[in-house]
Design a protein around this nucleic acid. Structure first.
Lengths: 220, 220
DNA sequence: GTTTTTCTGGACTGTCAAATCCAGAACGCG
DNA sequence: CGCGTTCTGGATTTGACAGTCCAGAAAAAC
């Protein structure tokens, strides 16, 4: 896995150089999260990171490449930021706890910013194919993290056998994204709560169905 | 309802003038749908609509105002484009038909563009508060259209009494949005299918629960 | 039919942000 | 301690693009 176009190359890079690069990416990520890609100038990034033009263009060929680095950075941050809950979504209680966490995060941000990856998606999907592909990869990692727990439930027999766990994980991710967008636009956590409650209830309903029919019949 | 800041004013406007204005908005809406707000220059809109600078700035004070008009335009188009199904989501079959329609639309677009309102949301929510409010209003209309049918089911006793129909409608809208984003990013209708199936199944499960307990107890 | 308002053409301007360039400093390495 | 590579500073160029202006055509008003 991962033979083709992950990250093209990273010419050596000194310890100090790496630090500067990281500082630039971190500053860019923060600004872009707050103001969007189009709303964030290279100039803003420079002053926020405390670097000069030549430094920035020493590490990144152009703004687009910087954006790509930000996508990678946020893809990690988003998954890491939801741990340890995200990696263990293998029970209804775990799902509810994760739901509460997601809602709490939005509340603490006053429902601003939305999803660090999702908002990039809306802005870049039709603009830059390379970005679109990288965002898709970020979502894939996220989806996989969710699928881990759902798969565990499934194998344990806590979900009906005919259910596709990957599909369910995908639905959970999609629900989360949709909730985030509406919550961001309305500046109100209600949509996120509503959709996460609905999807978790749905999983719970599948769970109780599985326990009622421990071994499902093979034909429909 | 709607006493305050709907549309500020529209100085008279001749029949021909109205036509030109509409042409500009339609062209802008199409381009923005395809390339995003930041990716669409005023110049592009001018040539696409076949108008000159002075015409465009005769009808709109600046690009931002044009964007606002596009938001209003798409808010209508999105709801209208889903009729008559959207207005009658008052049964499980209707929900499934609507789901199929939503998926079919994405297929026909090759999963490009996402949601005409949703993608605007991602791009403008943190950039322009005025746009954010107008997008929220657009979503509200959409939500209301969904709620109509859900409310009908609820009043008919097809959903458990303790369920809040508005909340469920909000969850359906959010699920749709999330599915659209992932579908757009992955260029694959699977996420939309997965999340809409999940949410419709959830409603179906509520439905069968309601029919099992036709009159619910008043206390929790 | 003249007068007034609305509408249109297209050249022009100003701004602002992305990207370049030429040094020169710091650092790694033998 | 030389020698090359990596890294940094900041002035400068370039170009795109939002927005302006004035003059004239078309339509409405009376």
């Amino acid at each position: 896995m991962g033979t083709s176009s992950e990250i093209v190359e990273t010419p050596p890079l000194t310890a100090k150089g790496q630090a500067t690069r990281d500082r630039i990416v971190a500053a860019a990520a923060r600004l872009i999260f707050e103001r969007g890609v189009a709303g964030t100038g290279v100039e803003d990034v420079k002053s926020a990171a405390g670097v000069s033009s030549s430094q920035l263009y020493h590490y990144f060929a152009d703004k687009q490449e910087l954006v790509h680095a930000v996508i990678a950075h946020q893809s990690e941050a988003v998954v890491d930021g939801q741990q340890p809950l995200l990696g263990r979504l293998d029970s209804i209680e775990a799902l509810r706890a994760w739901r509460d966490q997601a809602v709490a995060i939005q509340r603490s941000l006053h429902c601003q910013g939305g999803c660090p990856i999702g908002s990039l998606a809306g802005e870049l999907a039709e603009t830059d194919p390379e970005s679109r592909a990288r965002i898709a990869a970020g979502f894939a990692r996220w989806e996989q993290a969710i699928a881990q727990g759902i798969n565990a439930m499934h194998e344990r027999g806590d979900l009906p056998a005919e259910i596709d766990p990957e599909e369910l994980a995908l639905a959970i991710l999609a629900a989360h994204q949709g909730g985030l967008i509406l919550t961001q636009v309305r500046r109100d956590p209600a949509p996120l709560e509503a959709v996460l409650d609905a999807i978790v209830d749905h999983v719970a309903s599948l769970h109780s169905r599985a326990r009622r029919e421990p071994i499902s019949s093979l034909d429909g």
